[in-house]
Write a protein that binds this DNA or RNA. Sequence first.
DNA 1: ATATGCATCTCGCAG
DNA 2: CTGCGAGGTGCATAT
Lengths: 231, 231
Amino acid sequence: MRVVIAKCSVDYAGRLTAHLPTADRVLMIKADGSVLVHSDGGSYKPLNWMTPPCTLSVSEPDEDQRAAGFTEIWTVTQAKTDDRLVISIAEVISETVHDLGVDPGLVKDGVEAHLQELLAEHIESLGTGYQTVRREYMTAIGPVDILAKDALGTSVAIEIKRRGGIDGVEQLTRYLELLNRDPLLSPVSGVFAAQEIKPQARALAEDRGIRCVVLDYDALRGMDDPETRLF
Amino acid sequence: MRVVIAKCSVDYAGRLTAHLPTADRVLMIKADGSVLVHSDGGSYKPLNWMTPPCTLSVSEPDEDQRAAGFTEIWTVTQAKTDDRLVISIAEVISETVHDLGVDPGLVKDGVEAHLQELLAEHIESLGTGYQTVRREYMTAIGPVDILAKDALGTSVAIEIKRRGGIDGVEQLTRYLELLNRDPLLSPVSGVFAAQEIKPQARALAEDRGIRCVVLDYDALRGMDDPETRLF
DNA sequence: ATATGCATCTCGCAG
DNA sequence: CTGCGAGGTGCATAT
């Protein structure tokens, strides 16, 4: 890893073209050759970057570039896609090099898969007598998150999202349409379950007779272990 | 902007929880208080981060932490969402501070708007006798990307995407449904045009009688100016 | 301010 | 390897 703070301008040409006027920026050159150009704001996304695999070559400025005050030209190329990032250096303010080694990697927890798992385990929170039939119930157009049965034995298809938008309702609608063609399952009702459901999505769902359920992640987790807390 | 290379472990708790074992990493602290934790690989996405607005506070390690070899504890909190990033520093390897100032910002070119413009100009690439009626043809539920007529004078609604997915087909379907209620336009056929069309989207479109067209950005651009090349 | 859609998306998983 | 969906998505634009 090499971290350089420099006054520079940047040009990118690939799927789009972009230009950054001369200013002070942080340049990160990773061990795999990838390059990130960061400013002192925004979020984690760099102003410009080059994804690996790519190669960095440093060249002398031509006459015009030298006259414009540039001392070095860095060219980062990705052989396969013809993408090209050119960093014109006017002044190197600081430079640090250190071998970080391979990162041991991170451990995640708490995404949609976990929501699905928790709801499948505590399906009775949808109503007395509910039972989970299968998670990831496969159909021709993709897997239904959870297939369940209610107290009367009627099939229920459940679509789970962290944020419930219109696209999620459309998705569930397609599943329901398909599942209801199966005489062994039909009639199949729908439940749209999410941590938050947008008003338009709720309106569309209810208009189609789909029940909306707002999930409480902490409450579902609490059913497993009331002691569980962050920190 | 402050750039620190340090041996550290990282814990995040917010919408999910994540843990990073102790290793050498690059820590970027931006002027707005946001923090990025980068390793020596991957692409531009950090291993962990905190989006602004947030505040960083440094504290002494407690007894256990000191025994584990940590010398400083950095806590980054986002008051509004209760997100919390804790960086436990075992050793600072290098540190650089520099005020980058406000970035002048970048200039982009070459996105979906450009595709739409190119296709509208070269609408005959959809078939002999095609003519563009209007770009951004307004309807009650939003603008149709291009409204055209074929050689017979029949209306054609065209939806353009860079990547054609199911949602794009649904969108075009809603437009077609609406446009076909207008006796002055009806019948209106549909064209789903994209640089790439996903198989499921193609299947859905063709099932609904919507024609799929894969756009070649470079070829369309080449019709304007055969000399045009990047570099 | 909120909602909607695109992204040089990135990332992981399943077929 | 490719396709597909989710993201602590970020980001701009229209409403």
